[in-house]
Simulated assay, not measured.
Amino acid sequence: MNGEEVKLSGNTVVNYLVRGNGKVSEQEVVMFTNLCKFQKLNPFLNEAYLVKFGGQPASIIVSKEAFMKRAENHPKYKGLEAGIVVERNDELVDVEGAIKLKNDVLIGGWCKVYREDRKTPIVVRIALDEFSKGQATWKQMPLTMIRKSAIVNALREAFPETLGAMYTEEDADLNKASNDYSIQAEIQQHANNEPIDIVEDELDIKKESSSEVQDAEFEDIPQDNPNVWRRT
């Protein structure tokens, strides 16, 4: 990264680059290490880190600074404009920066990203109530935080081939919810649509005694599906 070689090991990730009280799995460590490798992220500069709480799946978090560095290095990047969206006199108004009038009501954030190969900018507007988690930072600096989230989402849309797989702490939950919804929708749409015939000769169940089954060896499927076993 930036001309410097960064070495990561599983122990280094577990001992120094994980936040939260959960224990990360080997699979999550490998995914994190590969993300850093392929996206050229330096976790020692807080460009990326793992967050794990209890038994929940770990989240791979990327900093806003990493997004900005990647955009700055893209040959087609031509700058951005960003700010907040407020309600003023019953109208929505885009305000540049992160400052508002006393009577303005904060509604969300906006960002425009300019690319050399596009005639119009990529424009993103996001709602405050979808991103604010009620944490201390959001309570103390809601204008700054919603503007930051708008920038990250706009950069991701502007450069999907470079930033599409990276998520900051503010939008990691939205990404997980989107993935969960997609999985459930896929199940509801396609589950049980095709009959599956199990041939007894292939399984050879009737030819094996219970003791033979107990003595057989099994191979554990990776942790993403711990309830499934494959006969070997």
Rank of each mutant, 00 (worst) to 15 (best):
N89G: 15
D90V: 04
D90F: 05
D90W: 01
L92Y: 14
V93G: 01
D94S: 06
G97Q: 10
G97E: 10
A98P: 01
A98C: 02
I99D: 12
L101Q: 07
L101N: 09
K102G: 01
K102C: 02
N103F: 13
N103Q: 15
V105E: 15
L106W: 10
L106I: 09
G108D: 07
G108A: 09
G109K: 06
W110G: 02
C111R: 08
C111M: 09
K112E: 10
K112G: 02
V113D: 06
Y114E: 04
R115Y: 09
R115H: 09
D117P: 12
R118N: 14
R118Q: 15
R118F: 15
R118S: 14
T120N: 11
I122M: 09
I122H: 03
I122F: 04
V123T: 05
V124M: 09
R125K: 15
R125I: 04
D129W: 01
D129C: 06
D129A: 06
F131C: 03
F131R: 10
S132F: 08
K133A: 08
G134N: 04
G134C: 03
Q135R: 08
W138F: 09
W138K: 01
M141N: 14
P142L: 06
P142F: 05
L143W: 00
T144D: 12
T144Q: 11
M145Y: 01
I146D: 04
K148D: 11
K148A: 10
S149E: 13
A150S: 13
I151V: 13
A154C: 10
A154P: 01
R156T: 11
E157H: 09
E157I: 01
A158S: 12
P160V: 02
T162G: 00
L163Y: 00
M166C: 11
T168H: 04
T168M: 14
T168G: 14
E170F: 01
E170C: 01
E170D: 15
D173L: 14
D173E: 14
D173T: 10
L174F: 04
N175H: 10
K176V: 15
A177P: 00
A177R: 12
S178R: 12
S178M: 10
S182R: 07
I183Q: 03
Q184R: 13
Q184A: 10
I187R: 05
I187C: 00
Q189C: 06
Q189P: 01
Q189L: 14
Q189D: 08
A191Q: 07
N192F: 14
P195Q: 07
I196W: 02
D197Q: 06
E200C: 04
E202V: 08
E202P: 00
L203K: 04
L203V: 09
D204G: 06
K206N: 12
S209P: 02
S210C: 08
S210K: 13
S210L: 15
S211I: 10
S211A: 12
S211M: 11
E212N: 08
V213P: 00
V213N: 07
V213D: 03
Q214Y: 11
Q214F: 13
D215F: 03
D215K: 11
A216D: 05
A216K: 13
E217R: 09
E217K: 13
E219I: 15
E219V: 15
D220G: 00
I221G: 00
